[in-house]
Design a protein around this nucleic acid. Structure first.
Lengths: 152, 152
DNA sequence: TATTGTTATACTCTATAACTATA
DNA sequence: TATAGTTATAGAGTATAACAATA
C-alpha cells in the first residue's frame, strides 16, 4: 500500500534538505496529493480527474474535436478515445461527425453530461479547498496565477 | 506519441475556460511538463526524477532507512527496493544493515554516488530554469514557498 | 504478534505502431 | 500522401498480498 499521504510522520527533519528546495519535486508532490484528493472525491461519481477534464472541456463554450482535446490535455489520441468511450457509455457526451471534415468528431455534452459536470465540479471544489487549506485566499490566487504562467 | 508539450498550438481560446481555473488541473499540467523536462535532462545520466530524489536524500545529512525513504517520498516500499537496486547496481549507494535494528537497512552514498548527484543536480537545475523561465526570480521563490506549504 | 525489506502479481497509465476512413 | 480516429500491444508506474528475517 502507498504510505500515508501528507505528514511524513516524524520526518520533519528532512524539510530543510536539498530535495525540498527543488521545484520539480515540490510540484510533483503537490500535484500527486492534489490529484489523489480530487480522485477520492470524484470516486463518488465514479469519475477520475482525466474524465473530469474532458467533461469540463466538453461542457465549455467551444466545440472541440478529439484531436484538439488531445493537444490541449497533452494526452495521446488513443487515451482520449478510451476516456470518451467511457463518458459516452454513461451518456454524458456525444461524438458528432464534423460535417466540414468527416474524419473529425466533435464532442458535445448531453443534458445528463452537464448535470454530471456540475456535480463533479462541486466535488473538485471540495478537494481543492482541502488541498489548498494551508494557503490564504490571496495565496491561492497567486499560486493559480503562477501555475498558469508555468503551465502554458 | 504524446502531443507537443507546451503551446496548445492555436488553442489559446481555451485559456479562459473553467478547467484552466482549476488548481488541480494547473498543478498536474505544470508538474507533468516539469517532470518531463527534468527526465529529459537526467536521461544524459540514465536517471529519472525518482532515482534523483532517492539519491538526493541519500546524499543529505540524515541517514535514512528504506522505510523512511518510502514515507517521505510517498512511494511504496517495493518501489524503493527497485530504485535502490538500480542505484546500488551502479555503485551510487550502499545498503547497510542497521546495527540497532537488524531488520532495517540504512542507505548511504558512495563517493561515486555523491559525484553522480552533483552532476544530476546541475542538470535538474537546467531544466528548472527552463520550466520556470516565464517567472521572475521573485515569482520563482514565491511559487516554491507556496508549493512547500501545500506539499507538506 | 508486528515490522522491514523483498518478491510476485495485477492493474492503471502511457507510448507506439498499424489500420480505416476520409481528405 | 497526409490526417482523425481507432485498435492492439507493450512498457512504465502503482497497488496489493505474501514471505523470510528480525523485533
Amino acid at each position: 500500500m502507498t504510505p500515508s499521504p501528507d505528514p511524513p510522520a516524524g520526518l520533519e527533519r528532512l524539510l530543510g534538505t536539498d530535495l525540498t528546495a527543488e521545484p520539480v519535486f515540490l510540484m510533483a508532490r503537490a500535484a500527486s496529493t492534489g490529484s489523489s484528493a480530487a480522485n477520492k472525491q470524484l470516486a463518488e461519481l465514479d469519475l477520475k480527474v482525466r474524465h473530469y477534464s474532458v467533461l469540463a472541456l466538453a461542457c465549455g463554450e467551444e466545440r472541440l474535436t478529439q484531436r484538439e482535446l488531445s493537444q490541449f490535455l497533452v494526452l495521446d489520441p488513443s487515451q482520449i478515445v478510451a476516456i470518451l468511450d467511457e463518458l459516452e457509455r454513461r451518456g454524458a457526451v456525444e461524438r458528432r461527425t464534423d460535417p466540414r471534415d468527416r474524419r473529425s468528431k466533435v464532442i458535445a455534452p448531453t443534458p445528463a453530461g452537464r448535470n454530471l459536470y456540475a456535480q463533479a465540479k462541486a466535488l473538485v471544489g471540495v478537494s481543492t479547498s482541502e488541498s489548498l487549506s494551508p494557503l490564504s485566499d490571496e495565496e491561492r490566487q497567486e499560486l493559480s496565477r503562477l501555475l498558469r504562467k508555468v503551465a502554458f
